[in-house]
Write a protein that binds this DNA or RNA. Structure first.
Length: 414
DNA sequence: TGAAAGTCAATATC
DNA sequence: GATATTGACTTTCA
């Protein structure tokens, strides 16, 4: 459910409001209403491909709340789910915003992020799993697309209506503030708040922070202070940056690892060792290999940044967002780990289930399932490279973990 | 209590 | 206009 966001709540008349309405409270949860139709879909909006398997318990039928469903859910293949969702949305010209607000109770940016960089199931908290369960349910609903289309139409209608009325108002009312969206928190004009301007870090600052990160993924307060003053940033900005970067790097690494693992999905075997070593998957370092074109040495920071370790290029974080789980992101649901996927479940029901996810596991399945057109296999050299990287990563991660247990960063050994 | 996870929402980019 | 990125913030967890 949409969180009670700190400062801003959506304007009542913002599009979110309709979404909130439908997402809030699972009584009115779209999923609950979908659930009545949760059954092997009779139609496939995206064209007769594999269909959801691993059926989830039906909240409507079972009286389960979404949280309960999440808790009981078998391991889902987050990559396959997001891939499928993207596909359906694209095919039907449905936007992330509408989908997010209506189905997931999330904002567009969150949806984009989620779809592009899904975390493996085993790394998600219960809360983090919720959107995936919602997506799964949505995919299982044969009328999901229609419903969203309807919603889209309704929104458009409402928008037109608002526009019309604001137009006519602006004719009759002097001042013309009517109809203006006070987006965040629906403030009245008198309350025009003093919004904190968003900090936008320049490339140099980012570069410097990345280098500092390579030195110390967990900088000491002193280092943070130094960085902040040298870069002329607030310490909180530096702290936030490190938090965000660590977290985002980690997600990239998950994806890299999965790809490097040559198609072993996050779900397989209850999480492949390399993945499940989750802790081990939590490397906060770059890969430690000599990467092509490392970041140039930046001068003047005065914090002893070295460049000998091979930098985490932007590439690591930014250039591979396509990794969003399309290509080699296979992964089969591990039915054996599922308390729900009993003998009658779709596990092993060849082809019925989207989440049997045969799609990427073997080329022999390619013809009958959904091999992504968008997912050209990487060449073998890349794969080798990735495997190497993964191995290196694990090594580094291990050391990082050791290092992390030492309080004094100076004791960290790299 | 600090780090991670999760998310929002402003802004950039396509 | 839709999507991607990312700084900031809240919640969760160990």
């Amino acid at each position: 459910t949409p969180k009670t966001s700190a400062s801003c709540s959506p304007a009542p008349e913002s599009p979110l409001s309709s979404a909130e309405e439908s997402v809030n409270g699972l009584a009115g949860d779209p999923l609950a209403s979908q659930s009545s139709s949760l059954k092997p879909p009779s139609e496939d909006p995206s064209g007769g491909e594999s269909q959801p398997g691993t059926p989830l318990p039906l909240p409507g039928h079972s009286g389960l709340s979404i949280q309960e469903m999440v808790a009981m859910s078998p391991e889902l293949d987050t990559y396959a789910i997001t891939k499928k969702v993207k596909e359906v949305l694209t095919d039907n010209n449905l936007g992330q915003r509408l989908f997010g607000e209506t189905i997931l109770g999330l904002t567009q940016g969150s949806v984009s992020d989620l779809l592009a960089r899904p975390k493996p199931w085993h790394k998600l908290s219960l809360k983090g799993r919720e959107p995936f369960v919602r997506m799964q349910l949505w995919l299982q609903d044969p009328h999901s697309v229609e419903k969203l289309m309807d919603m889209k139409r309704l929104e458009k209608k409402a928008y037109m209506k608002r526009r019309l009325s604001s137009l006519s108002d602006s004719h009759s009312v002097d001042g013309g503030l009517v109809g203006v969206d006070y987006v965040q928190g629906s403030q009245s004009p008198g309350q025009q708040h003093l919004k904190k301007p968003r900090v936008v870090l320049g490339p140099e600052e980012k570069e410097a922070l990345k280098k500092a990160y390579q030195q110390k993924p967990y900088p000491s307060p002193k280092t943070i202070e130094e960085l902040a003053s040298q870069l002329n940033l607030k310490t909180s900005t530096v702290i936030n940056w490190f938090h965000n970067y660590r977290s985002r790097i980690r997600r990239e690494l998950f994806i890299e690892e999965i790809q490097a693992a040559g198609g072993l999905g996050p779900g397989s075997d209850g999480g492949s060792p390399s993945l499940r070593g989750s802790k081990s998957g939590e490397g906060d370092s770059c890969d430690g290999t000599e990467s092509e074109g490392t970041v140039e040495t930046r001068q003047g920071l005065g914090i002893g940044l070295e460049d000998h370790r091979g930098a985490c290029k932007d590439h690591d974080m930014e250039a591979e967002s396509e990794a969003g789980g399309s290509n080699n992101s296979p992964a089969q649901i591990d039915c054996t780990t599922s308390g729900l996927a009993g003998p009658g479940s779709s596990c092993g029901q060849g082809g019925l289930g989207l989440f049997s996810l045969t799609e990427a596991t073997s080329s022999s399945h390619a013809s009958s399932t959904n091999i992504p057109a968008s997912g050209p296999a990487r060449n073998p050299r890349d794969n080798n490279l990735r495997k190497k990287k993964a191995a290196n990563l694990n090594n580094i991660i291990h050391r990082l973990e050791k290092a992390a247990s030492k309080e004094d960063p100076s004791e960290w050994e790299f």
